[in-house]
Design a protein around this nucleic acid. Structure first.
Length: 215
DNA sequence: TCCCCGATTAACT
DNA sequence: GTTAATCGGGGAG
């Protein structure tokens, strides 16, 4: 019997981002390109963006951009950052609760040639090792904002092996300036597919350290 | 309307 | 380690 990935249930995503983010590690994001090619990558790094989280796009309320975050769970929230990069999130929590999990890095498993063609990358490690890299490899942009990853047909999440809890490492989120101390980035320990090494190896920038009030 | 800045990346020194 | 690229969001005026 061929092992066919199972879809996630809607209720899996109907929890807090903090609960869903680590639980997505070791599972797969699947994408079918317009020509029928299937891409698959196994999640190794996520970040949680909670309700009332100063680092969240939804912190200051509902806007056209973040509208999907306020909707039902299990949908994609895709945004453009720095005027050129797209990032993929999965909306979590009940409708009305604007939380989401940022998909940051994954191990590419299927369709590596297609990913490389879009990325212009020569090494496999450069295909999905960062939120914008991964989105580009998967040919995902704002046109995918709101897509259903539970029942979708062009992009969806599949239950795979998962990861043992003792292999999950939590650390500060990357690139955020608000609530920078919250350890809401989750990584598969020692994975070579991360956007950056996990753990305490991340050094605080000098300016940030200097501006810190120290009791 | 104006203006600053960002959940990043790649190409520099 | 540093920095340009590049543009929409959203707060300020």
């Amino acid at each position: 019997m061929i092992a066919v990935g199972r879809r996630f249930s809607r209720s899996f995503f109907g929890r807090s981002a903090l609960a869903v983010a680590p639980d997505l590690l070791g599972h797969d994001l699947v994408r079918v390109l317009p020509d029928g090619t299937q891409l698959r990558a196994r999640i190794v790094e996520t970040e949680a963006y909670e309700q009332h989280d100063p680092a969240s796009h939804a912190y200051r309320g509902r806007t056209r951009r973040n509208e999907v975050m306020f909707g039902p769970p299990g949908h994609l929230y895709v945004y453009l950052t720095y005027g050129m990069h797209h990032c993929m999130n999965v909306v979590t929590g009940e409708a009305g609760h604007a939380c989401a999990v940022l998909l940051r890095a994954a191990e590419p498993l299927e369709g590596l040639d297609q990913m490389a063609a879009r990325r212009g990358a020569d090494r496999d490690r450069d295909l999905c090792s960062g939120p914008a890299r991964w989105a580009q490899a998967f040919e995902v942009d704002r046109g995918f904002d709101g897509d259903d990853v539970v029942s979708g047909t062009r992009i969806w999440l599949e239950w795979a092996d998962g990861i043992r809890e003792d292999r999950i490492v939590a650390g500060p989120r990357i690139g955020v300036t608000q609530a920078a101390d919250r350890p809401w980035r989750f990584c598969v320990s020692g994975s070579p597919w991360l956007s950056r090494p996990a753990g305490s190896a991340i050094r605080r920038s000098r300016s940030a350290a200097a501006s810190r009030s120290s009791p």
